[in-house]
């Protein structure tokens, strides 16, 4: 079994985070999701500052539409 890639979400609005998580759950995605609140945190995560987490496979970019 291949390991599932991580998904990194960069979003400061908790409502948007919840909607995204729900949508991901709806599609039965079991990937680990990492949420950072802003660009600085995201960069910290990506450059492995302060932790040694593996790089994410996907970073969804702002593409919000109703």
């Amino acid at each position: 079994m291949t390991t599932l890639g991580r998904i990194l979400i960069v979003e400061d609005d908790p409502n948007d985070v919840e909607l995204t998580m729900t949508a991901l759950a709806d599609y039965n995605l079991a990937n680990e999701v990492v949420v950072t609140r802003d660009g600085q945190q995201a960069l910290d995560y990506l450059y492995c500052r302060g932790n040694s987490a593996p790089a994410p496979a996907t970073i969804p970019l702002s593409c919000c539409s109703i």
């Binding site: 609005d13 409502n15 948007d16 909607l19 729900t22 919000c64 539409s65 109703i66």
Partner: peptide, 13 residues
């Protein structure tokens, strides 16, 4: 647009 997106999203949910 942000609050509106939440209204639509959560109403759909």
């Amino acid at each position: 647009r942000a609050p509106l997106r939440h209204m639509v999203g959560f109403s759909e949910l």
